[in-house]
Design a protein around this nucleic acid. Structure first.
Lengths: 205, 205, 205, 205
DNA sequence: TATGAATGAGTATTCATTCAT
DNA sequence: GATGAATGAATACTCATTCAT
């Protein structure tokens, strides 16, 4: 039983260090943050970090988990929702809200590092991005057959939707004022635009 | 005249080093690349770089120029084109093509560093992103008044369009296979979707 | 009695750890081996080692015991053997055989460390080397008086004999193939050479 | 020509650092000495050492050169010297004298490290020990045929001679007082003993 | 008494920057 | 101006030792 207790203590410590790392990495980036910075923020000794993580990179890779949970934990689609507008609505409104400041910090450092390090890029693609795209792609295929959405190229459309969402997050991370104050309702507007198009149709007049 | 010659020589050397830096930074990232790497790639001595650039960060900031030219050099909108579909078409087709492998490398390292360093983030926002958004925003406002596009919130719509484009580039940089082989025609499809919407309208049947 | 039992248990544990340490030190050297390596090899926790030994250096010093026993346990000379050839024979044949692979490992690490650390050097000299030299020196003195061996400088001769033996062990430890496969009979040959000299005497023809 | 000057300067610096390293390693051993210790002793910055040596181990391996020169530079045997006694005389007298305090320091650290690190052991064997043994072995073979020395097993005899010499050096390095004050004449005595044997022959009476 | 997680001092190595030539 | 050797601050990681359980 002391064994179970130890495991729990270990897990708590791990999460504690990960939170500190998320904060420090979010502020200074992966390369800019030192193990000492993280240890200080977590209130432990430098060496303690290595009782939990193999090395600095391992900490960063562990931060992919919350991002992955983000995608896999809450399925984008839902068997009963065959309404494409509702799908977009959910994609943009709900997901935007789940990006708390802390999770944004994680995204910031993970994206930054993934762009220049294949060892981060590969798991990000495989564990976060693809699990976000695939169900969407499948759902779009189904909806296309039933006539709800335009039928061409679900592979491309799913990527476009994710791209828009990621791009909005990116602009926010880069300091765009408009997106820093975007809330769920803002996202609702964007979902509507994507659903109905930007151009007003003559036939609608 | 010798003065002029010197200036030209200097400018040539500067461009030469910048090209080498673009390549090296694109491959290794900003922190992962050393001054020595760049000097080697440019065929000059380490010290020579400091005759042209103040420090390593200065090289990176200088790489914003080609990205800025990207946006300001070829205006997104064009007074004569009052057609919103054509605007989107141009935004996605032409711009996608201008992202040569070298420019993608620049974008890669600049984005990576901007995400975690405010000293890169601010000029990227100011010199590249905002100059891309503002004319678009203005044009959308005009088109909204003339009824060509939906009228609400050009600030948000312009950001959404840029977000989609940036997001597509981002997915490509992160290794998404579909987007790695996307060409101008692929971008044309995406522009169409944004123009007309994803949902098929009952009224259109 | 429980007290006695405890002492025995303690002594067993001590010997167990020492054996593990001999193995690990022999493979990795003193600095290259970690307390954790030794604890693992002994099947105990790191902390347990400190219940038995004061510190890492104390383990190494404790490994001098088997080497010391080597010398003091089996006296080199024997009052009844006044035959110098027999003495050399015993010195080389018997002692060579007592250097089991494990004891060679101990010698390896002790020599290595003694060469660069006075805190190991002094006890090695005092507890192992001098106890090996002195009785030999004494015996040579006696034999010199009775005319069995050349009379000059027993101090030097005893050292020369030990030097030869140590040197042979050293070459073996350094990987010399010929000595790695040397057995007792090989040592017998060497003893003969030392007894009779390398040069063939004209008078012997 | 400035190129030639640079090479010379580089070589001087290299030798300067090597001398400092020999001193520091000799005092503290390989593991006990830090790069900073060596840099301080050489009067240069830590980083400068890495302009000359690839890493710490490379410094140690470079210290094999003076030891190798020791053996290969001055051939043990000499075509004209067919006299075995003279050969031993030279082996012990001359070589002992070449072990200056500095070279002894080098031998100390090289032996210490070679005992526990195969990466040092192999080159020591190949570049120092074998080049010392082989010519000796050959010469002994020749002398055996001409009847000057006992004929059996030159492989073993050559090793025995080197073992004796190495063993004497080892005892000296371990602090044996008698050998710390041994000079060339002491070595002469030892050579005589090896030549003529330890035992006084009845036939010689 | 045994455990093994926490500690934090210690170190090889890197690399941006300088500056004598 | 160009060079590239010298600099030395900075940092990930190790490991002997301690001590609460």
């Amino acid at each position: 039983m002391s064994n179970l207790l130890k495991q729990k203590t270990m897990e708590l410590r791990r999460q504690h260090i990960l939170q500190a790392a998320a904060r420090v990495f979010g502020e200074r980036g992966f390369r800019g943050a030192t193990i000492h910075n993280i240890a200080e923020a977590a209130g432990v000794a430098d060496g303690t970090i290595y009782n939990v993580f193999a090395n600095k990179a391992d900490i960063l890779l562990s931060l992919l988990d919350p991002l992955a949970t983000q995608t896999t934990g809450k399925p984008l689609t839902n068997p009963t929702s065959a309404d494409p507008s509702a799908l977009l609505e959910r994609l943009f409104r709900e997901r935007w809200e789940t990006f708390t400041p802390e999770l944004l910090g994680v995204l910031r450092v993970v994206l930054s590092e993934a762009l220049v390090d294949p060892d981060v890029r590969a798991p990000l693609l495989e564990r976060v991005i693809e699990p976000a795209i695939h169900p969407l792609e499948r759902e779009l295929g189904v909806m296309a057959k039933s006539g709800g959405v335009i039928s061409s190229d679900p592979k491309l459309i799913s990527r476009t939707l994710l791209a828009t969402f990621l791009g909005l997050l990116l602009l926010r991370l880069l300091g765009d004022r408009r997106l820093e104050r975007a809330d769920a309702s803002t996202m609702g507007k964007i979902a509507d635009i994507l659903a109905d198009g930007l151009v007003t149709r003559p036939s609608e007049s």
